[in-house]
């Protein structure tokens, strides 16, 4: 029972949020809720309103219509933000201050004890560079300092907007590892990205946006009501195709060279299917059951809405 209460504890609630920049509607009637303990992804192509939405809830962009509230709705936004850790786009610090001085300033803003500074610098691996000025840092180090800064107050929720943007592969790997470590500690995370594999690797829930509109919000694995598909190869290809076409369990069938892809209309596991084929006298040389990757699901979702 206690666990259920914990799950339902909401951190951020957004209701019918709309943002217009002149004639352009960047966010259109958006509603979703973020609950404690989950890792959320906001997915969408560039210009879909991800950063604008985050900007609104982070008090730097003014909403046009709608409302949002943090936690139980009784704290003002700027007070709530003291319990939030966020980094938006590129890391913004005072170039003439050292890492430690910059974090000290953040501590003063958030009202956090300064003893956390060294601990968080250690987490992101910048302890040996703490007395170097921010302007001497590489982009990867700047981004890691931003994460350290966001963690200073041991936030209830960590908001990351495109955290790996512009980094080299090594930097991307470092940041992802840090995010995974933080997720493992049970911190709620909201990750905005256009990189699908990034979201797929760490998120449990996802909100999909396109042109400011919400296409989907919910669990990653329930994004499309799909039972998955089989990838098949057989020497007797024509017979196999005719069987599949006459079976109502299967929807569309795609043939690419020797590879046949058969989409399921109802649940069926690979063992049952293999047995069925064997009974019909067809021997498979290749059988894989797969679910759509997030990328395929995402494209399917955005395509459907376009049509």
């Amino acid at each position: 029972m206690e666990k259920i209460n914990q799950i339902l504890e909401s951190i951020l609630t957004i209701n019918n949020l709309t943002k217009k920049f002149g004639y352009l509607t960047a966010v259109k009637d958006l509603s979703f809720t973020i609950n404690k303990g989950n890792v959320y992804g906001i997915l969408g192509p560039n210009g879909s309103g991800k950063s604008t939405t985050l900007g609104i809830v982070l008090n730097v962009v003014n909403k046009t219509e709608g409302n949002f509230h943090w936690f139980d709705g009784h704290t003002s936004t700027h007070d709530a933000l003291k319990k939030v850790g966020a980094i938006i786009e590129r890391p913004n610090f005072y170039p003439y201050m050292t890492a430690q001085q910059n974090l000290k300033l953040v501590c003063r803003i958030k009202g956090v004890d300064e003893s956390k500074i060294l601990e968080k610098l250690e987490v992101v691996g910048l302890l040996d560079r703490k007395d170097h000025k921010f302007r001497t840092y590489s982009l990867g180090m700047k981004q890691r300092l931003a994460i350290a800064s966001a963690l200073l107050n041991d936030p209830e929720i960590l908001i990351l907007d495109e955290p790996t943007n512009g980094l080299d592969p090594q930097g991307i790997h470092q940041i992802r590892q840090i995010i995974k470590d933080i997720a493992n500690t049970g911190t709620t995370i909201l990750l905005a990205s256009h990189l699908l594999d990034e979201v797929e690797k760490v998120c449990t829930h996802v909100v999909v946006l396109r042109k400011g509109e919400k296409l989907y919000s919910g669990r990653v694995d329930e994004m499309i009501s799909s039972h998955g598909f089989f990838e098949l190869k057989s020497d007797n290809q024509e017979a196999l195709i005719s069987i599949l076409e006459n079976d109502t369990s299967f929807g569309s069938i795609k043939v690419e060279g020797a590879l046949i892809t058969a989409f399921l209309n109802e649940p069926m596991d690979a063992k049952t299917f293999n047995k069925l084929m064997f009974e019909k006298g067809i021997i498979l040389s290749h059988l894989v059951k797969r679910k759509e990757s997030l990328e395929e699901q995402f494209l399917q979702l955005t395509d459907n809405k376009e049509a």
């Binding site: 982070l58 008090n59 730097v60 003002s76 700027h78 007070d79 933000l81 003291k82 939030v84 966020a86 938006i88 590129r90 913004n92 610090f93 005072y94 170039p95 953040v106 803003i109 958030k110 009202g111 800064s149």
Partner: peptide
């Protein structure tokens, strides 16, 4: 001017400073 050019004004607000403060 520096707060705008370094975009630290944005970061200050995100960190929980209100616009009034």
């Amino acid at each position: 001017g520096n707060e705008y050019s370094n975009k630290t004004i944005k970061q200050n607000l995100i960190d929980g400073l209100s616009k009034k403060e």
